[in-house]
Design a protein around this nucleic acid. Structure first.
Lengths: 224, 224
DNA sequence: GAGTACGAAATCGTATACGAAAACTATGGC
DNA sequence: GCCATAGTTTTCGTATACGATTTCGTACTC
């Protein structure tokens, strides 16, 4: 996950602002004033503007004509859209990657999942989330379709900006998640067919969404 | 399909360049010189640059540092990635939309499909392609997840830049496509479950990809 | 004759500057 | 006391300008 070193200043601005959003320095609703960011980073407004537009394309920022940019909010509807889309994309990514995952990768994924179990006991939701991404990254690292992988990462980034301010364990869900990871690994090991793996992976994400919806007692809206 | 009237100049530049790419005025590989485009459009380079970066984010343009922008090429690998991704996204979009499609929309879709049949007889691949998008647009117009819809449109745009220079009927495939449309409508009418509809819609796109691959005798790589 | 090195032209990347639109504030009327 | 309105301030949108980098052409050497 090493970020490529700074190339252009717009790249630099992009990375800097994105990092601040993902880590929660800029919280949702935060007003991104171009001139102010430019000064902070020691560059002019032009590269900053370019960076902001790029973040807008990724959904991390909302840009309004002649008004300015704000960090995209935590709107539950947006969360639902993002999770539902991720459910579909991750399902496909897992199914496409499964045949290419070797025993070594499986072992690594298990190790990560084991660490996640530890996080449950020590109650460390932040690390849990990071490891969760690592787990799926291991599965996806040989994904044969880079477009799909890109969509996965976009979804993750979007969620990250939300999590930075609101993440907490949904009671019981995290435990389930760890169990589902193990089940998924066994499916992959056993050489299950693509459809089965896809459905399991999709359901894995959708279940988190359902748990969230149940908690905020809105209507259920799972992917299937 | 009316384009929203010009807002900012960067919006204007975006729409103009995108149109030229989609309609084939700028063919793949075409070098997009910022200053030249700026002059053509009567604006300065800054909005043009912004427009180009936006098109880059959508995959229509390739931008290389200190070198410049070119219209994204027709690389068969990219085509495969795009079609495979579209297969997944359209499948999901169709399944999600299906419960919300009423009899009126079905009738409209049938009318479009009928026109497509005519295009086959009159051998009009360009109009056939446009109608094909119309057909699916009717199905998707009430898609409950705008993110998914957005991904569909991005995929279509990418294909458009390719089609403008290379589109032709793949023997037999267009006829099949029309038949599959009708089968899809009947599935939706009959209230088939989401999984069935999703698989059918996904297969519909994947089959076109397979036909393409068969023609260019590469290995088969359907989504399933 | 082919390959390399140097220089000129083209093009990009970013800074600065200024006009335009929106947001904010204060003042006056009801 | 509250709302409408005018003026001020902030911030955006775009033009212009210039330094940096790449590319292309030419001359020179082996």
């Amino acid at each position: 996950m090493t970020e490529t070193a700074v190339g252009s200043k717009s790249e630099q601005a992009y990375a800097a602002v994105k990092a601040r959003i993902v880590e929660g320095t800029y919280t949702p609703g935060y007003r991104l004033v171009l001139a102010k960011i430019a000064e902070d980073l020691g560059v002019s407004v032009v590269p900053v503007r370019e960076a902001i537009r790029r973040l807008e394309a990724e959904g991390l920022v909302k840009f309004e004509r002649n008004v300015g940019a704000t960090v995209s909010g935590i709107d539950p509807t947006e969360y639902l859209y993002t999770m539902q889309t991720l459910s579909i994309i991750e399902g496909a990514a897992t199914a496409l990657s499964a045949p290419l995952i070797d025993a070594v990768a499986i072992a690594r994924a298990r190790a990560v999942n084991s660490e996640m179990r530890d996080c449950l006991e020590h109650f460390d939701p932040v690390r849990f989330t990071a490891l969760n991404q690592d787990f799926h990254s291991v599965l996806f690292e040989h994904c044969p379709n880079p477009h799909i992988l890109d969509l996965v990462h976009r979804g993750w980034n979007r969620l990250a900006s939300i999590r930075a301010t609101t993440f907490r364990f949904i009671p019981g869900r995290a435990q389930e998640s760890v169990q589902e990871h193990e089940a998924l690994l066994q499916l992959i090991e056993s050489g299950a067919d693509a459809d089965t793996i896809e459905q399991a992976a999709r359901r894995h994400r959708a279940a988190t969404l359902d748990a969230y919806l149940a908690q905020s007692n809105a209507g259920s809206l799972s992917a299937h």
